[in-house]
Computed example of a mutant assay.
Amino acid sequence: MLLWINGPFGGGKTQTAHEIQRRLPGSVLCDPEHVGFGLRRMLPPALRGDFQDLVSWRQGVVEVLDLALTRHDGVVIAPMTVTDSGHFGETVGRLRELGHDVRHFTLLAERETVLERLRERGVVHQLQHVAGRNAGGHGESWAVRQLDHCLERLREPEFAEHLWTDHTTVPKTADRIAVLAGLTLRPNDEGPLRTRLRQARVGIRHIRFD
Rank of each mutant, 00 (worst) to 15 (best):
D166Y: 00
G122R: 06
G139C: 06
R111G: 01
A109P: 00
T173K: 03
H167W: 05
L154S: 06
D101P: 02
T173F: 06
T173Y: 05
R153F: 10
E152Q: 08
H138A: 15
R103Y: 03
T106G: 02
R119C: 02
A178W: 04
D101G: 03
V170H: 06
N134P: 15
D148G: 07
E156I: 10
L115M: 03
I177M: 05
V124I: 15
P187E: 14
E190K: 14
L107I: 05
H125E: 12
V102Q: 02
W164F: 01
Q128P: 06
A143L: 12
L108R: 01
E140W: 11
V170T: 07
Q146L: 15
N188K: 14
H167L: 06
K172M: 09
E158L: 15
A160S: 06
C150K: 04
G182D: 07
E156R: 14
P192A: 11
G132C: 12
A143E: 10
R145P: 07
R153C: 09
T106C: 01
W142P: 07
L118N: 08
T165E: 01
E158D: 14
F105Q: 01
G136H: 05
R121E: 14
R121Q: 14
P157S: 10
E152G: 07
E152L: 04
H129K: 13
V124G: 07
L107M: 06
Q126Y: 10
H167S: 09
Q128F: 08
H162P: 02
T169E: 11
E110Y: 00
D101C: 01
E152H: 08
G139N: 08
A160R: 10
G137V: 14
Q126E: 14
H129F: 11
W142A: 14
T165G: 01
S141P: 08
I177D: 05
A181W: 04
R153N: 10
V114Y: 00
R111H: 04
L154W: 05
R145H: 11
V144A: 09
H162M: 01
